[in-house]
Nucleic acid binder design. Structure first.
Lengths: 150, 150
DNA sequence: GAACCTAACTTAACGTCGTTAAGTAACGGA
DNA sequence: TCCGTTACTTAACGACGTTAAGTTAGGTTC
């Protein structure tokens, strides 16, 4: 059963090439102004080839965002261990800002592109969902009566 | 010279109809998903008629934003008279937030649409440019040494 | 080894978009 | 009466996301 695995590997390789090209173009020029044809050009495939690996442009975007969100949330696992909620909130906020300053195009992609919200991640689990993480801290603070309810 | 003025008036009226239709559609459905054809349909003209009154879709958007920015800045003329910069900053911030909560679709249009920045207003004059207004307050606070430089 | 099947593509096309080119009808002035 | 301008319309262009219909290479089955 050698050839089957090779084919699988080749397929995954093309898929990765598409993702890499799309990430680079999306980040540097914005999602709207990058066309499927341009992505295809860059990897020397026809535009339709992309649809064999991804349902549509949104699915391609979603996969990239998933990946970026996962990377972003890695910054929070250390912060999560800080006992004081106030300090934790401060560092979490700083993590957002620093990420935004460091990777502005990714930040725009993740937090300012409406469709990025359709990502499969981003649903409650504080390990993956930085927003849920923030909400958790605030709930804790409110529980301790250290914050007005607004 | 009667007919000339009537024609002028009629022209202005069509222009206004276009603006009204565009504002409503842009605000409720987002700039990207509203087509020139839809705007034209709504006022019962052909799509090309719009181009007789506006250079292109961006120019139409810019005109709407100009108008909204001017209205928004009206909220600031009262605030500008408050002597204490801290209090002034507080109220200015509140004005932003209140406007955002009151007219979320306009807020999105004005502050979250990259092209809105191309508006002809928005250039330094604190009477029209709310951002310049904020910067003025902050400069004043820093001048008084009441704010860290960041 | 020939016939067949499937995976991984390509070429051609569809419908829609913003926009422009080429009319055309109405109207005011010479 | 003819002419030119104004305010449009219809038809078309090129580019977009996407899909339908081939095509070809490689493996499977008899």
């Amino acid at each position: 059963m050698g050839p089957k695995e090779r084919r699988e590997r080749e397929r995954e390789e093309v898929r990765t090439r598409i993702l890499d090209a799309a990430r680079e173009l999306f980040a540097s020029e914005g999602v709207e102004s990058v066309t499927m044809r341009r992505i295809a050009d860059r990897i020397e495939y026809s535009p339709t080839a992309i649809y064999f690996h991804f349902k549509d442009k949104d699915a391609l975007l979603a996969e990239l965002c998933d990946c970026d969100f996962r990377a972003f949330s890695q910054n929070f696992i250390a912060i999560a261990r800080i006992p004081d909620p106030v300090e934790r909130l401060r560092l979490a906020g700083r993590a957002y800002v620093e990420f935004g300053l460091m990777h502005p195009s990714h930040y725009r992609l993740m937090f300012m592109t409406p469709k990025a919200a359709q990502s499969t991640i981003e649903r409650g689990n504080p390990e993956e969902d930085a927003y849920a993480f923030l909400k958790g801290i605030i709930a804790e603070l409110q529980g301790q009566g250290r914050l007005r309810d607004e």
